[in-house]
Design a protein around this nucleic acid. Sequence first.
RNA 1: GCCCCAGUAGCUCAAUCGGACAGAGCAGGUGCCUUCUAAGCACAAGGCUGAUGAUUCGAGUUCAUCCUGGGGCACCA
Length: 588
Amino acid sequence: MFEAEQHAINQRLSAFCAEKGLPNPDLNWTWIPFNGHWGICTSFFQLAAREAREGKAAGPVPSRAAELAQMAAEAVGLPDGFERVEAVKGYLNLYFSTANYASRLIDSVLDEKQEFGRGKAKGERVMIEFSQPNTHKAFHVGHLRSAILGDALCRLLDFAGYDVVRANYPGDIGLHVIKWLWNYMNFHAGERPETNITEWMGKIYAEANRRLEENPELEAEVRALYSRWDQRDPEVVALWTETRQWSLDGFDEMYRQLDIRFDRYYFNSMAEQPGKEVVAELIEKGLATDDRPNNGTVFVDLDARLGLKEKYRVLVVLRSDGTALYATEDLALAKLKFSDYPDLARSYYVVDVRQSLHFQQVFKTLELAGYPWAKHCQHVPYELVNLPGNVVMASREGTVVLLEHLIAEAVSRALEVVEQKNPDLTAEQKLAVARAVGIGAIKYPMLARENAKIVTFDWKTALDFDGQAAPYIQYAYVRGGSILRKAGGEIPAAFTPTHTLQREEVALVDAISRFPSEVQRAAGDLRPLAMATQAYDLARAFNDFYTGCPVLSAEPEVRAFRLRLVAAARQAIGNALALLGITAPEAM
RNA sequence: GCCCCAGUAGCUCAAUCGGACAGAGCAGGUGCCUUCUAAGCACAAGGCUGAUGAUUCGAGUUCAUCCUGGGGCACCA
């Protein structure tokens, strides 16, 4: 936003260096790290170190850097738009002329509204595949991370300027589905789920596993059913089609509550046959070894082919009995995506970290098979959601927290708080607030964490609405709205303030001004964490402002400026929340 | 055995691709609601960033070697 000013300063500094016979400096401007001071800074250590290395040492590096910074400060003078320039310990700090810059910033926020921070269209299409739930199973908190993370990535990349295709890839076939069908046919024929569909589906599945563990001889029946499926026995296919839809309906309900949507569904079952064709192609190209005559598998020995040892290892692409595995299907899926969208610049897979090797193998195999788009495929790994004590959530062990239960509990807990805080709202409004707060509280901890770090789920912190959490950010948004409402809803016209801004005002303006570049950084690094932190920083700056700077009771000019600042801050917070997929409520 | 990831306050996490005094929240301590919603704010306390070396003007961040924990390594997904 201040590129023009920065450019002018860069030119002056280049001229200064040329005059002094110094190499052209590599100015790496960053924000001044001191709270309540708004401006940009750079350092001269690298320049001083370079001098020293070239034998032109003029004293120790730190003192030389300080000297250079001092000289640079004098050379720069006081450029337009800045109110102070200083050289401190080798750093050159330029403080914005706050009143001037602040009003420019606020003007553009209020002008762009929900588009504030949006990057220029990059003209690149990317696909993000996420969520990948298994039908005929429960949907638990462990499955939530891919859904929430993937959704946030879609929102971020879209806002950063990419054309995003949101893809889902449900696991709708496999041994787990057959077990489920077997249990249903034998013990639950004719039943259908009423409410809490996925929970009910999960119960049938868990029961199937229990029965098979207690009576292992029944496995034969399951195997028989699997071959009926393989023969596409109409009765089995019909039942599969119907029951699969139950799960998908359940997922839809869950996605609706979480405000997550998809543009494109790929199904495991769709990739089964095409996968076998890819394998045939690999064999034909001499890439895959067909060891089925010796009762073996079809596999690709990646390491042998690449002359490596214990890196890519061996990828089995077809079972010895000729049936498909996950890898078989993934080969076809990748191909399918690029035939649906030939212009994909990137195909992301938001899948947990345990499958890192698997994806490396699949992508490398496709690359060796000569598909040029293979190197545009990228696994976005994330760590699991565990229970306290590092207990893994596993539907078979029963150590799961069901998503239905978590949502219901979070919303009802939030409802209790709203009843108490804001009893005047209508029942409908209270429920809307409780939903926003409850869901937000669930999403935030999944996003405000490095992708590669394990999330430990426990009820106490999941339902804690205080401190560094979504409700804190939502609350700042609500407080802003409340001020604007009491002021009559009209935002004063643009003007440049003449009063000296308070520390809290400067800090808030500073936080807002960083939003656009944070969007790019978070999207570029595929890290919603950066945006979650940004949202929190904005809310904290706003809350500080709120307690330190009265708005409605201030002098007319101050009041007008602050009303504009509140509106801009609220907009920025709202935009940040939107990128996290968290609803910004009107009241709380 | 090989490979990947994590290790920061009692607990949960940050730290703007190597920069200024390592920052928040929770828990516990002390204050602040006649003033825009206290789901908030302020103050105090809490640290040898797993260990030892190396590179650098400068290291939580890079490199080496270890330690601890988690995960992955041919017919599960």
